[in-house]
Amino acid sequence: MIEFNNVSKYYKSNVGLDNVTVHINEGDFVFLVGPSGAGKSTFIKLILKEIEPDKGTIKVRGEDITRLKKSGIPKLRRNVGIVFQDFRLLPKKTVYENVAFAMEIIHQPKRLIKKYVPQVLSMMGISESAGKYPDELSAGEQQRVAIARAIVNRPKILIADEPTGNLDPDTAWEIMQLLNTINMKGTTILMVTHAKDIVDKMEKRVIAIENGRIVRDEFGMYGYMQALQGTDVTFDTVEVQTRNLFRTRFKRGGGRR
């Protein structure tokens, strides 16, 4: 779904990414962690073709986007939803309008807008707030709207840059449940976060970068189960074992096949 092959991105005096090779498969839920300035946003910007790599190739859904023309960017982004830490809702539009906006600007017919917007609002549990303005909502509700907007065009990939950064732990956990639901419906999710507890609790693949290099790539329970595929070990037995295993972390370097 997303492939980085020997990708480097250098800024004037800083390293953005340094020879990064990593593959994210369709349906994955991946955390991207690392200290400030590690290169996480650089990673995301490269996927969205906001910036160009200095070396290497990046494939999104099988297409080499480093060779994509500027005019192809809108089409690329229609397949990649994005959610930010600061929500970025339009204050003068209602919840409904904020979500509908994402469909309007890519020329979706009114009929579809009327059908999909209520659907995703209900999926995010904010149907009652449809007529409200963002400043009438709690932070958690605002992030639900932002997620609704990001997925209403049914992107294959959802990128979330610290989506829980402004939320209290309970609300953050609710948001994580929503992202999990979206992931289970088939959307590949890449989430940048500093929240260690969430990463631990979610038991998903974790890519850690520092100074532009991948320093860890852990697969969590999901990866462990993938590893067990084809063996005669059953899920029930695994479940108990994995709980213990997560204390020590199931670790495997490089890309997964």
Partner: peptide
């Protein structure tokens, strides 16, 4: 500016 940046992220074309 916010609206424009969102439009860009959602995949609106420049001429639009």
């Amino acid at each position: 500016a916010d609206e424009i940046s969102i439009m860009k992220y959602v995949g609106a074309t420049n001429w639009f």
